[in-house]
Design a protein around this nucleic acid. Structure first.
Ligand SMILES: [Mn+2]
Ligand SMILES: [Mn+2]
Ligand SMILES: [Mn+2]
Ligand SMILES: [Mn+2]
Lengths: 220, 220
DNA sequence: AAATAAAATTAGACAAATCTAAAAATATGT
DNA sequence: ACATATTTTTAGATTTGTCTAATTTTATTT
C-alpha cells in the first residue's frame, strides 16, 4: 500500500531493463553497476522491495519483478518516454539532451498529468530514440527490428531506433545526418573490419561496425 | 556549493511567502504550520540552511532569507508558476487542480528546461491565479491591486487575482462564472454583514465579505 | 515583579538510503 | 576435488529529514 519512493522506482526500472523487459532474473552486481551504487546497497534495497512484494528475491539467486513490480516499472518507463517526446516535440530539445531531464520527470506522480500529456502529444507510440511507449493499461508493444550490422549485402531497411542512446552516439548520427525514418541501403560489406558501404537518402557513406551494431532497422 | 535538496527548497519557498516576499523575518511555528512539520524539525533545518548561507538565523529570533536564499526561492516560484501556466494552457487542467502537480514539478532541475518552457508558453507574466512569474534574472514584478472588499460603492475594477487559491474557493468562482479579466462594478455595500451587490458582465449578484476579501482587483 | 503561557530549542530516537570492511556463499580453473 | 576468484550478503557507520518529550527562552498576565 505505501507509496513507492523515488529511489525504489529507479531500482525497479533498472531490474526491468536488465532482465530483458522484466522476464529474467537479475544479478546484484548488474543492478549496482547500472544504478551507480554499491552491491551492498542493492541487497538492502532488494529486501525492502521484496517486503513490498515488488520483486522476488532469494539470497544469492538474483531478483525478478513480480507482476506488481512490472506494472510499476512500466508506468515509470511510460512517463519517461512520454516526457522525452514532449521535450523534443514541444520544447525543441535535441534527442541527445532529453534523457537526464526525463530521469527526473518520470517520478512526478499524477495520473491525470500523464493522461493529458499523452493526449497533448497525440498518443505517440515511440519515444525520440525509437523505444516503444508502454500503454496506460500496462501493455508493452514490441516490433520487429534488426541491427544494421546484421543486414546482408543489397538489403534495405528503415531506421527505427538506437541500441546505444548515449549523447555521443546520438550526436554522431546528427553530424552524419542519419535520422529515424531514413531508408538505408546496404551496398557492400567489408569482411575485414565488418564495416558497411551504404546509401542513405542519396548519399553514399562508409559505416563502421561499431555504428552499425547500434542502429536498429526494420527490414524491407 | 552543494546542491539544495528538495526539502530545503520547500523551506526556502515557505520563508519567502511567509516573510512578505522574503523581506521580513519569519517565526519557527509559522514555518512549521505552513510546511506541515514540527517546530523542532524547522529549527534543525534552519541550522542547516544557515550553515549554507541561505538564511539568517538567530536562536529564538526567527529567520530571514539571505540574498542567495531569496534567489533560490524565486527560482523555485518561477518554476512553480510556469508549470501551472503549462498545465492550464497546454494540458487543459483547471486552475484548482494545478497546485499539487506544480509542487512536484517545481523541483525539476534543468535551466534549459525552464527557459524553453518559458518560451513555449510565450513568456507569460502571470500564473493562472494572477500571481506574477519571477524573471529569469530574479526580478519579481508586483502590481497595484486591491481586495474587492475594500472597494467603495459605485467603483469598478478588473479581477486580476485571488488571495486564497484553495480548490474550494476557485471552484466557487467557477460555479459563479467569475474569472480573471472580468470587470466588476460595486453597486451597493451592506453595512450589516459587509456583503456587496455587484455587477459582473451583465449579471447582478450578491457577494459575501468572505468572498470579496479574497479577490484582487485592479481599480479602474 | 512574579506567575503563567506560548514559542523555540535541545536531547535522543527513528527510518530511508547510502557507504566501507569483513564474512559467507557460489562459481571457476586446474 | 580443492584452491582461488568472484559475487553476494552482513555488520556497523553515516547523512538527511523527521519525530516526541523535556527544557529553555521569550511574551503575556495578574
Ligand atoms: Mn531516456
Ligand atoms: Mn528514450
Ligand atoms: Mn500554486
Ligand atoms: Mn499559482
Amino acid at each position: 500500500m505505501s507509496a513507492i519512493s523515488h529511489s525504489e522506482e529507479n531500482y525497479l526500472k533498472a531490474i526491468f531493463h536488465l532482465g530483458g523487459e522484466g522476464k529474467q532474473s537479475v544479478a546484484t552486481n548488474a543492478i549496482a553497476r547500472s544504478i551507480k551504487t554499491k552491491p551492498s546497497s542493492v541487497t538492502d534495497m532488494m529486501k525492502r522491495l521484496a517486503e513490498k512484494d515488488l520483486v522476488n528475491y532469494r539470497k544469492y539467486k538474483g531478483v525478478s519483478l513480480t507482476e506488481e513490480g512490472k506494472k510499476a516499472a512500466l508506468s515509470i518507463i511510460r512517463k519517461h518516454r512520454l516526457w522525452e517526446v514532449f521535450l523534443v516535440e514541444k520544447l525543441n530539445f535535441s534527442w541527445d539532451e532529453v534523457h537526464e531531464v526525463a530521469e527526473q520527470l518520470e517520478h512526478i506522480q499524477s495520473e491525470k498529468l500523464v493522461d493529458l500529456l499523452d493526449e497533448h502529444l497525440g498518443f505517440p507510440q515511440y519515444d525520440p530514440h525509437g523505444d516503444p511507449i508502454p500503454g496506460k493499461d500496462g501493455n508493452y508493444p514490441s516490433r520487429e527490428k534488426q541491427l544494421l550490422s546484421q543486414f546482408p549485402e543489397d538489403s534495405r531497411g528503415i531506421c527505427i531506433g538506437v541500441k546505444d542512446s548515449s549523447a555521443s552516439f546520438l550526436k554522431y548520427l546528427d553530424r552524419n545526418k542519419i535520422s529515424l525514418g531514413d531508408t538505408i541501403h546496404v551496398l557492400e560489406r567489408e569482411d575485414f573490419d565488418n564495416s558497411l558501404l551504404v546509401n542513405i537518402g542519396n548519399r553514399k557513406m562508409q559505416i563502421s561496425h561499431q555504428i552499425a551494431a547500434n542502429l536498429y532497422l526494420k527490414m524491407l
